[in-house]
């Protein structure tokens, strides 16, 4: 039912994850695995533990117990510096609300992860603009987040999440705040971009129309996961 054995060639694998916040059990033996280039939807009702699973997989929140392996390495054995370097350069993030820095222009926002990794401003903004073109928001480069629409802001956030060339993109309800037309466009562009770079996408969503952009789904209920492909 849960915690499937790590399948060969998987990039990120979790087994038997448990996590409690005080008396609240958020994860109760959840498992997960994803291959390079794969888009996996994490579905389930609100409060079932989807975001907690994503945070654990991304090394943002440590699980109470269980194993998470990225590229063959056990995450619990890495120190904080290693984990945060992983998050900066190997992982990309998109959340429901873009979380762009309001004081920066859109292109500066997209370039930010590269700047934090020490890339020069010129170089970083050039790469950033390339990604903005792919997400069809390059004309917004000089605007600030407050001056663009929700759908545009979310595409800027997707560009930012991909700018470092991550191997895993974590997206938590990336279209949750958008109408269906904008949501679909974001999903199309996000999955196209991820496929072109062979990034794996962990896509948390409770919406079936969004999950339909995935290759397969796992369902989380009461902190336990069910892999629908392997379960059959």
């Amino acid at each position: 039912m849960n915690a499937p054995a790590a399948p060969a060639g998987s990039l990120l694998t979790a087994e038997d994850l448990r996590k409690a916040y005080g008396p609240t059990v958020a994860l109760d033996g959840a498992g997960f695995s994803i291959h390079p280039g794969e888009v996996v939807a994490v579905m389930g009702p609100s409060g079932s533990g989807k975001s907690t699973l994503l945070h654990c997989l991304a090394g943002i929140v440590p699980p109470d117990s269980g194993s998470i392996r990225y590229a063959g390495r056990e995450m619990a054995t890495m120190n904080d510096a290693e984990r945060s370097s992983l998050r900066r350069s190997e992982f990309g993030f998109v959340f429901q609300f873009g979380q762009l820095v309001p004081e920066l222009t859109c292109v500066e926002n997209v370039a930010l992860p590269l700047r934090l990794n020490g890339t020069s401003r010129k170089e970083a903004e050039k790469t950033a603009l390339g990604w903005m073109q792919r997400l069809e928001v390059d004309d917004l480069a000089k605007k600030r987040p407050g001056e663009v629409s929700g759908g545009q802001g979310q595409r800027v956030a997707v560009a930012r999440s991909l700018v470092t060339g991550p191997r895993v993109l974590f997206a938590d309800e990336p279209t949750g705040a958008l109408d269906s037309l904008n949501g679909e466009r974001v999903m199309e562009l996000l999955t196209d971009a991820a496929r072109s770079t062979n990034a794996a996408v962990v896509l948390v969503t409770h919406e079936a129309r969004v999950a339909a952009y995935s290759d397969r789904e796992i369902v989380v209920r009461d902190g336990r996961s069910r892999d629908m492909e392997r379960a059959v």
Partner: peptide, 24 residues
């Protein structure tokens, strides 16, 4: 009964993926 619902969701999603792909 949860299994029945999960399996049915999976079957529906299979159809939705095909339609989404065709739409794209």
């Amino acid at each position: 009964a949860g299994d029945i619902l999960d399996n049915q969701r999976s079957e529906h999603l299979r159809s939705m993926r095909i339609l989404t792909d065709r739409k794209r």
